[in-house]
Design a protein around this nucleic acid. Structure first.
Lengths: 242, 242
DNA sequence: CTCAGTTGTAGTCATATTGACCTTAACTAA
DNA sequence: TTAGTTAAGGTCAATATGACTACAACTGAG
């Protein structure tokens, strides 16, 4: 909104005061094999703070909102700057605006969350100031970013049920076992392969290809392709022009 | 976030520029009997704009974010100023930040949605500049507020399935038929009374009281009370301190 | 005082969905 | 050739859902 319905003295004086700073941050999820088990698990890239407050600590990639960028554009820019990747999925998570999130000035952060397929080049981008971490069991982060990541994980797990999100962590074609592994990585529990297959065929929009994934010491699984319409993808978010 | 990971010339110059204006608006839902059918339907209060842009048109109540208020506090203040009511439910809807939402300057609006029980006094507050409208079939509003209301309705309908929200539109005790009427008003379709009752008993957290609602020309219905734990109420939102 | 009208409440039944489990198919490595 | 492994399809009981019927409990008209 652009004005108060009832003009009061407080409103007028506040309008002249400095407004809170406005920043955009992005929680970027990708699937990587765990070092220990080798199974796919959720990872996210963080950047190291190079100035106070919280100098030296890890934080979500982000920056101030510029006049010329829409919110989603700003989030996509964060993502490209940090990982060099373009997102398969990008959606607004929440606007955090507590009074004491940053020790110095009042900052309102509009946070997006994204899902990407990491390329070799993107993973090799790691440096002293950019590093990938497992999404669960993170160390202490700068600001309230631990709580933001936890909330993003919660939202991700809830959205899984609706479908379609899992495919944004996978490539063009995939086996049903790979889809199941995505679900298992996000939901953090094992799923019955047979029942999972049946459920996918009922609800999800996938089609079988004629190809099979060769190379394993077992029966080769069929490859599938996602056929969900892109319109329904961002179901849950208003048009990005707003 | 509070800084960009990679400092570029563009970032430095942008940081010195004027940041976008930050406003809070609130979509306030309440249940009122329809004039035609008499059945409960969804209404919301709007305020008339008294200056350009969109002078004279109806808009969501709201105003600029002050330094001393959290986002949720600002939304609650909107609500109290407009209706004189305190909300039964208040949750962040979305942050709208498109480049051309307001013709003059760039405005980012963080929008909340609320559910209230209107009192007689609150409804009598109507004036030339504050009026209640049916939520569906609204006339053209200022800014992008039609799209915002549509999105709020979409979110409300989706949240209904999870339960607990309906009770925030009702009083302390209620009949099962009243709960059903809330669902019917929000979902805009009729529901089988017997099946609805069964489903509520399975999932919802309600308990029967010993009282019955007298006065109708029919068998008096039993009154129930909501027993859902307040912790799970705002399930779907991060702690309000953030 | 009786009965028609209305709404609350409980139950039935066919169908769909879910979770646990079993069986067979198809491949590799030893 | 065989043991090991994963793919893929099926069965079966338990549970949930939607359409519908039957009965209960009240008011108000006559």
């Amino acid at each position: 909104m652009e004005r108060t319905p009832f003009i009061s003295a407080a409103n007028v004086s506040e309008r002249l005061a400095q407004p809170p700073a406005l920043a955009i941050s992005t929680v970027i999820f990708a699937l990587r094999p765990s070092e220990s088990s080798g199974r796919p698990t959720l990872w996210l890239p963080l950047v190291r703070r190079i100035r106070e407050p919280f100098e030296g600590m890890w934080a979500l990639p982000g920056g101030p909102l510029t006049q010329s960028q829409s919110l989603q554009d700003a989030a996509a820019t964060n993502l490209a700057d940090t990982t060099g990747l373009t997102p398969n999925y990008l959606e607004q998570l929440y606007a955090f605006g507590g009074l004491h999130r940053s020790p110095s000035q009042r900052v309102v952060s509009i946070v997006y969350w994204a899902m990407v397929q990491p390329t070799e080049a993107a993973l090799a981008r790691e440096s002293d100031n950019v590093r990938w971490f497992r999404a669960d069991g993170l160390a202490e982060l700068a600001f309230d970013h631990n709580q933001i990541v936890d909330y993003a994980l919660w939202r991700l797990r809830n959205k899984m049920a609706y479908g379609s999100i899992a495919y944004h962590l996978l490539g063009e074609t995939f086996t049903l076992a790979q889809v199941r592994e995505v679900y298992e990585a996000v939901l953090n529990r094992t799923l019955d392969p047979a029942n999972f297959r049946r459920q996918l065929k009922q609800t999800a929009h996938i089609e079988a290809t004629d190809e099979y994934l060769q190379g394993g010491a077992h029966r080769p699984p069929r490859l599938y392709r996602y056929t969900g319409d892109p319109a329904a993808e961002n179901s849950g978010a208003p048009p990005s022009s707003l």
